[in-house]
Write a protein that binds this DNA or RNA. Structure first.
Length: 580
RNA sequence: GGGCGCGUGGCCUAGUCCGGAUAAGGCGGCAGCCUCCUAAGCUGUAGAUCGGGGGUUCGAAUCCCCCCGCGCCCGCCA
């Protein structure tokens, strides 16, 4: 039987196991009269293959105490209090101290994983995550979606960690790019294709036209000037073009299971006076000056060679100035604000943060991702050189459809289409999120269309297998509630079973880390490991054919694994398909 | 030229922040497993001077310095 009280005490997960180990270690160190320096991980705790948690603290003490690490570890080991709950035993392995999880802990993890809403972290901050924010001058391409997927996954991770998150899209309606779109609309006809693609066509055409017709540039300048002045005709034109493009972009985002909670147009901050206000505040720093007819901020003392231009010669504002106002607003309306930006924004986001510091405004946490390029070179919307997200999703869906059709030929067309859609959505997201943001990548069709182990379908498939077992088990046996009450968790002693429970326990640690470090790829790695653990369990621990009591225990584990897989997939924004 | 980032088996990547016990996966090779809960799965096998060189340390893929290669940036664009 599982200890039902544990469910109510709540949260017996990996972080609690770690807490207990820390308590045991610091207690033992005290008793020995040893002191470790303050610092991150000063107890030398580490996940490793030899133990559930290992400490190399003896190495750190050795130079100070002038004793061998082995001798120190031995002393600490002997001084460790025998009173523990989640720890089963502490082993001395030379200079290392190895901690192992107790049965009580494993059973508690299982109980928790079986409960509803088992995984909500303890963070309480209000967080604004700004992501995507692509210019409304064309469709999202395979570079943009790195921003979208990283951003949306972080939104989900932060929510899972307990935060209240607002996902925001910052719309660049005042920039030169949008002015070019309006000029493009004046000279060329929007065709009937998907809105964002149609906008891209006139935008590309206008840029091409500009090569031979310098008048185009002047027209764009006029648009910028008149929009900033609030000219109603231009305002109507820009608003309709922006809304049209954003509509198409949203459609693409929805295909990837991505939604924003709010949109902020940069013009909003010009119209409500906060851009002017920010410029005024910067003036008080004494670092601003008029140079070459433009209003500039000198950040030379802060390591920036180039001055930051706040206003053009013709008086209009620039992206960075408007962004400053937006960030001031974000900081005032959140406890944490996070920006997802491409590598080309490194310098400018540094300038932005410096300027905010001067204004005594909390800086955003900036997640920079490196570029996605094509085998033929870098992408450019302006030059029409890109693979659109829509094209990618279409291809992946087509491939997924063929795969499902081969495996489930008896199923209806609707079923195949729906599974293919959700597999494709997951495949695209996982393919992006699995790589660390600071790695530059080259887009590869072969890899995008690979549905094997290092992919979303692998994880979705594990989940579907768990569901299949549960479905079959429920048909022949009692209700889920009864099973949860009655199974004997202590029977789950197989190597694969224990490994699976431990992997399930790790979830809160991964979420906590990913939420603090803003590294969504940790969760992608975890998802693969969890699926792998489940597949081993599936392969080596038959559930339905096991003896009755073992069968019930394994059913419970299958259910716990299903919950963990489902939660992990949902946090990655990937559909947890029950059959595929 | 300067700044930032990256360099891990043939290819793609995790591990690097916070140094610890045999460098972990995938793709592709090779050899196996469907009268057995969905084979989008599982098992085994071959394959790595962790870009190069110095340094710090009891210990370096991880920290420091130099060099090489690749990417991004250095607009009154965003």
């Amino acid at each position: 039987m599982i200890d039902k009280d544990l469910i109510h005490i709540g949260v017996p997960m990996f972080l609690d196991f770690i807490s207990e180990v820390e308590l045991l270690l610091t207690g033992a160190l005290d008793r020995c009269g040893y002191k470790v320096e303050e610092g991150v991980n000063n107890l030398g705790l580490d996940l490793c293959p030899h133990a559930d948690l290992a400490s190399s603290v003896a190495f750190r003490l050795a130079p100070v105490l002038k004793k061998s690490p082995v001798a120190i570890a031995k002393e600490i080991h002997q001084a460790i209090s025998p009173e523990y709950k989640y720890v089963e035993r502490v082993e001395l392995a030379g200079p290392y101290l190895n901690f192992y999880m107790s049965r009580l802990f494993l059973n508690a993890v299982l109980a928790r994983a079986l409960a509803d809403n088992a995984w909500t972290g303890r963070m309480t901050e209000k967080v604004i995550v700004e992501h995507t924010s692509a210019n409304p001058d064309g469709p999202l391409h395979v570079g943009h979606i790195r921003n979208s997927v990283i951003g949306d996954t972080l939104v989900r991770i932060l929510r899972r960690a307990g935060c209240t998150v607002d996902a925001e899209y910052y719309v660049n309606d005042m920039g030169r790019q949008e002015a070019m779109v309006v000029v493009g609309c004046d000279h060329f006809q929007l065709d009937g294709s998907k809105a964002d693609h149609a906008i891209a066509r006139v935008y590309i055409a206008a840029n091409k036209e500009m090569e031979t017709n310098p008048g185009i540039r002047a027209e764009a300048d006029q648009v910028i000037l008149r929009y900033e002045a609030g000219d109603p005709e231009i305002t109507a034109k820009i608003q309709s073009a922006v809304k049209y493009a954003i509509g198409g972009i949203e459609e693409t985002l929805h295909r990837m299971n991505i939604r924003h909670d709010s949109y902020h147009w940069e013009s909003e901050f010009v119209r409500n006076g906060s851009v002017a206000e920010v410029v005024g505040l910067l003036e008080k720093t004494g670092l601003t000056e008029w140079e070459d007819g433009a209003y500039q901020l000198d950040l030379n003392n802060y390591g920036f060679e180039k001055k930051m231009v706040l206003k053009r010669t013709n008086g209009t504002s620039l992206y960075i100035t408007r962004d400053l106002a937006y960030h001031r607003w974000k900081s005032a309306n959140s406890d944490r604000s996070v920006d997802i930006l491409g590598a080309d924004h490194k310098l400018v986001s540094g300038q932005l943060r410096t300027a905010l510091r001067l204004l005594d405004v909390r800086e955003p946490e900036v997640v920079i991702f490196e570029f996605v390029s094509l085998p033929t070179g870098s992408m450019s919307t302006r030059k029409g050189k890109f693979i659109s997200a829509d094209e990618l999703i279409d291809e992946v869906e087509k491939q997924a459809f063929e795969e499902v059709k081969t495996r489930r030929p008896e199923e209806s067309e609707d079923f195949l289409r729906e599974v293919a859609r959700q597999v494709a959505q997951g495949a695209v997201r996982y393919d992006v999120v699995k790589v660390s943001a600071d790695k530059a990548t080259t887009f590869d069709w072969k890899q995008a269309l690979d549905f094997e182990k290092l992919s979303a379908p692998f994880i979705q498939y594990s989940h579907a297998r768990a569901c299949s077992i549960i479905r079959k088990g429920d048909q022949t046996h009692q209700t889920p509630e009864q099973e949860i009450q009655e199974f004997q968790a202590d029977l789950l002693t197989g190597e694969n079973e224990v490994a699976l429970i431990k992997k399930i326990a790790e979830f809160d640690l991964i979420i906590d880390r990913a939420a603090r470090e803003l590294k969504p790829h940790h969760l992608a790695t975890y998802a693969r490991e969890l699926a792998e653990c489940f597949n081993h369990f599936y392969r080596f621990s038959p559930v339905l054919d096991a003896a009755p009591e073992l069968r019930d225990a394994r059913m419970a584990l299958a259910r716990a694994a299903r919950n963990a897989l489902r939660t992990t997939l949902e946090t990655l924004g990937i559909s947890a398909l029950e059959t595929m």
